[in-house]
């Protein structure tokens, strides 16, 4: 992804900012402007806590172009405390010790270093939860 795209997504990638629907109250991530639950307009920013649990996971051994140097890595569906599920990499974990239901929390990490475009993308990954409330 180029510089404009990375810049556009900075609030989502770096801060996990989504939306809340003022009609039905559901929290939404990624932001999409129309609530997927009630189909009303939903453009009110909402800051997610970054806490959630592993809903499913896999280890990628055959990465797509641009991710070769990171393989193998673990990708998960993380169910956030506030409801939505996000797709993200897990970090600071041994793949064989990951389990469905495991508590995790968001951290900011390098997603990809695109040498040709001279863009380093940063964004959310999730690690086993070590902070307390």
């Amino acid at each position: 992804m180029g510089i404009p795209g990375s810049w556009r997504l900075r609030n989502q990638r770096l801060s996990l900012v989504g939306e809340v629907c003022h009609t039905c109250g559901n929290k939404i991530f990624p932001p999409r402007d129309v609530c997927p639950h009630c189909a009303r307009e939903a453009q009110h920013a909402f800051q997610f806590s970054g806490r959630g649990e592993v809903y499913s996971f896999t280890t990628v051994f055959n990465p797509p172009a641009g991710f070769e140097e990171y393989a193998p890595y673990t990708v998960a569906l993380v169910k956030l405390e506030e409801g939505p599920i996000v797709t993200a990499q897990l970090t600071d974990v041994e793949p064989e010790r990951v389990a469905i239901g495991q508590p995790v929390e968001m951290v900011t990490r390098k997603l990809r270093d695109d040498g040709h475009a001279e863009v380093i993308s940063y964004g959310y990954k999730f690690r086993p939860r070590i902070t307390t409330d």
Partner: peptide, 11 residues
């Protein structure tokens, strides 16, 4: 989804 799936290295 290019922005929210593929950008995270998922195949």
């Amino acid at each position: 989804d290019a922005d929210y799936e593929v950008a995270h290295g998922v195949t």
